[in-house]
Design a protein around this nucleic acid. Sequence first.
DNA 1: CTCATCGTTCCGTTGTATAGAACAATCACT
DNA 2: AGTGATTGTTCTATACAACGGAACGATGAG
Lengths: 265, 265
Amino acid sequence: MPKARPETSERDPLGRAIRLLTWMVDSPRSEWGVREIAAELAFPPSSVHRLLALMERSNLVVRHEASGTYSLDLEFLRLTHRAASKLPLPPSAIDHLRHLVHEVDESATLGLYNHQRQMVLFHALIESSKPLRYIVELDRWAPITAGASGLAILAFLPEADRARILSKPLEAFTKTTITNPIALEAELVRIREQGYALTHGQRQPGAVAVAAPIFGAHGQVVGDTVLTIPEPRFDPADTDRFVEAVRACSRAISAELGAVEHSPA
Amino acid sequence: MPKARPETSERDPLGRAIRLLTWMVDSPRSEWGVREIAAELAFPPSSVHRLLALMERSNLVVRHEASGTYSLDLEFLRLTHRAASKLPLPPSAIDHLRHLVHEVDESATLGLYNHQRQMVLFHALIESSKPLRYIVELDRWAPITAGASGLAILAFLPEADRARILSKPLEAFTKTTITNPIALEAELVRIREQGYALTHGQRQPGAVAVAAPIFGAHGQVVGDTVLTIPEPRFDPADTDRFVEAVRACSRAISAELGAVEHSPA
DNA sequence: CTCATCGTTCCGTTGTATAGAACAATCACT
DNA sequence: AGTGATTGTTCTATACAACGGAACGATGAG
């Protein structure tokens, strides 16, 4: 053996910095101590301290003179805002969503599909005026294998991607989540034929959801429009109205992305 | 000499990664090639490639199979979107700004002060309905030593900070920029007494600006509300109306931040 | 067919990230 | 005041990641 193979590089300093940033952003607070972060992320305090010092040099975080604690810096928040223009959706998508909610008076969200992660990102939310509403936490990843928000995307993925996702075990999020691949594939066929997905509490108990896919310029799914209705308020007679409104919204956004008209099946 | 001092650390891998990210966010495009980035940032192509590969592992960027080019990943955009809640301003600040613009029908911006950088960040913009408007590029850093947007903040900084800033040479951005420290200090006194700043083309030629500071819970300046009016349209008779509207806006935002009433001088 | 250019890989060298222990300052409580 | 448990910070040797110039293979244009 001429050389000990390093094989995998398992330290990944940059990855650690990113994990630190991500943790800070996702944390409800906005000011943190070194040892507190260290405990939470299972990094040695000295490492956290060095990382923060480096990030301070790049203006990502600020050190508070008095307490010695750290916060996110304005420069990072500036990045934050500017990055919004890089979204795969037109800025007007929100307007379409607002119009949809105004039309049916039920809460609507925009889901964005991420290929690497094979998950959906809840990116925007317009709430209905009615008092009973579900709490949707924005900017969180959601599964693609359960709930209308996921299925409306999954159904329209390329054959190969779909097969790969279905070949893995399907997690059950609620009692009505479909965990049988055969049954799920059948459901996906129906969704493709209909052009929308309608589910009852597959991801969140007690919520009915209607979702329709949004297509990009190359015909690929980029996300979906999702209408979420509390089950007690859901009247099946309204289904057509909801479906049409959701599909219209997705179609409008797709059109702005330069997608050609997408015919079912 | 017992030891050769390493003195300064001049490689700073993390800093490079940040510069790369920042450049991508600020770039108008949304897909880049390795050598293109390398040329722009003066990094060796191999370094850029390695950085991108690392960042892909942390889901900051995505590699496009076909072209081999890179884009920002949804996970990064999720981070940035989520970070918005960490801003030092209440979400309702935009509403107050909108109200201000509705009242006077001139464009208004929100400036945020950054202590490390000693600059102002133009963070939000509501435009007037009139056809002649200045183009304000959002999420850009602006100087604190020129223009109403800067002076309204500078005037209310702690004595020590102000002295330090005035001790350095003052850059001239236009012909009317004040570059004499004595003259500037006098102007700042007036701004403090009046509670607002009014300037003619100090930063941008042909623009009149009215700005009033926003204070945080501890009485420190966190930013300002700025009204920008094209000079040809500016009627001095309107000054009082503008000033009152701008100050009211800043006062409303300050109040939501928990600031106590701030009396001039 | 040729040439330019792309992203990528290679590899010896350089110097930074690492983590545990010790340090100094601060605060809460006795 | 005094004590003890915090806090953020500094220090150190060593392991390993970042570095960048040169070479590689694939691709597209002329």
